[in-house]
Amino acid sequence: MWDYTDKVKDHFLNPRNVGEIENADGVGEVGSLACGDALTLYLKLDDNQRIKEAKFKTFGCASAIASSSALTEMVVGLTLEEAEKITNEQIAEYLGGLPKEKMHCSVMGRDALEKAISCYRGSGDKVLDGEIVCECFGITDKQIQRAIQENHLKTVEEVTDYVKAGGGCGKCHEKIQDIIDVILGREKQPVENRKTLTNIQKIRLIEETLDREIKPELKKDGGDIELIDVVGNRVQVRLRGSCASCKMSQVTLKNYVETKLRELVLPDLTVEEVQS
């Protein structure tokens, strides 16, 4: 059982400001059904550009609902400049703290607020900028960097607690560690210089790596991969089993198969799918 504060329980059992605002001045949507939590925040401004009303709809656990409820209480009466300074830490503090595994709920609140403000201003989407690092939850490098800097995170586990990245299949843990290392100013391990491979050696090594490293992982999800040809540094493959019909398969191909082959065979390889 989670150790929720009385304030979290209160905001969960008696959430404030649930609902939608018609003709809202700003709307911020974050999260998704697949991710397990989602929040839509509605803001209405008065004539002096202060937040007059805030409402929310949330799908998620007790702390997600409580964080959303707390957020709507915190922003009313603030100017947008004041509101955009609210941090996820402040949302958690308002609730008397959150279990560390639930800190991502406070981050979701902050992200929704930022989106709602950008929506009002008609400016671009700050949150989703960057390159996706965690495929499972669609989290970008920018989001991870920001969470690390704002909350002084030091481990992959902490990053998962705050932004969920790395909480699914775990394939991105190394990338997250790299981001942490760069921010903390740690030296990156020098990439090992590989000796030149002959074509035969290269193909053998690719086959071996597919068999030993990649196929077993794909098989856990009922998928498979077949090597068709190697043209220069282009590795041509065909996806089998559940991978063949999976919408995420292109992401898997690039972010997992290609990364693994580059790491274990040659850094210049690219992977492409060929149709039968």
């Binding site: 989670w2 329980k9 969960f12 059992l13 991710c35 397990g36 939590d37 799908f59 998620g60 656990c61 007790a62 997600a64 609902i65 595994e101 639930k102 499972c136 939850f137 998962t160 969920k164 909480g167 699914g168």
Partner: peptide, 29 residues
């Protein structure tokens, strides 16, 4: 709807069950 929220609302009536959802276990999936 999300499982943890259901469990905690049932808990208010003393109903004990468990969930297959992510949030109750601390994992995210």
């Amino acid at each position: 709807v999300e499982g943890e929220a259901i469990l905690l609302m049932m808990n208010e009536f003393g109903i004990c069950a468990s969930s297959g959802s992510a949030c109750t276990s601390g994992s995210l999936e």
